[in-house]
Design a binder for these strands. Structure first.
Lengths: 119, 119
DNA sequence: GTCCCACCTGGAGTGAGCTCCAGGTCAACC
DNA sequence: GGTTGACCTGGAGCTCACTCCAGGTGGGAC
């Protein structure tokens, strides 16, 4: 099981080091292990969890809800149905967002066409 | 040409009255006309522009860029090619956003499926 | 006349999500 | 032994986009 330095995790995940520390501070990331010098050494598991975080974040899930999800994960396997519920609800919102954005894109394209017609 | 009271515009556009005042203050909305008592009376044109604003905002355009667009509109017809460029660039970003969200949605759904398989 | 209500203004405050800073540690290289 | 560079901590500061507030006006219903 390999470990990752902060710089490697920044490279892998696209989060800044400050964001990683912030996520750890607020409990979105479990306490990351340290080496003898006190520097963070991330596990494969941390990096994979950060991938999930990125996905939820970039689809618009607020931190408070990601925290709820993190707590469910921490609480163990008996919370899996709750996690499913949470993710399904989020999936529904993402679906709506995409549909709305498609509609708005059509509006923008109509506007562009109109402008093209008058130049 | 009908006019709209603040309450009607709130109803029509979904923006709060504070947001409308804010948009006017920063110049995203042209100075709105007032009646004898100093109360805002929005025109059809204002409401339609607010529709455009909503569309751009909800697809993630920052206020600074909407302001640039508003200035182009204000500057007159010779800026139409610039407006097209701006909107096309935005359209491209919206397209990317949607594609990214679709990919992330697939990830979420995979996660849900996995959870379902272990319950 | 007085009450309420919708609205006005300028300016302060808020919440989310980071981002930056000062001052320090440790290991490695010259 | 000095310098560099990656990292550490706690806490302050920042950006964005609003949102709220205090104190006031004008018009209509009772």
């Amino acid at each position: 099981m390999s470990v990752y330095t902060p710089a490697e995790v920044v490279e892998e995940t696209g989060f800044s080091i400050d964001t990683l520390r912030y996520y750890e501070k607020i409990g979105l990331l479990d306490r990351v292990e340290r080496n003898a010098a006190g520097q963070r050494r991330f596990t494969e598991h941390d990096v994979s969890w950060l991938g999930t975080i990125r996905c939820l974040r970039d689809t618009g899930m607020p931190i408070a809800e990601m925290l709820r999800f993190a707590e469910l994960v921490r609480a163990g396997d008996h919370t899996i149905t709750d996690r499913i519920k949470l993710l399904e609800e989020h999936d529904r919102r993402v679906e709506e967002q995409i549909a709305q954005q498609r509609a708005q894109q059509r509006y923008i394209r109509t506007k562009i066409s109109y402008y093209r017609s008058v130049v």
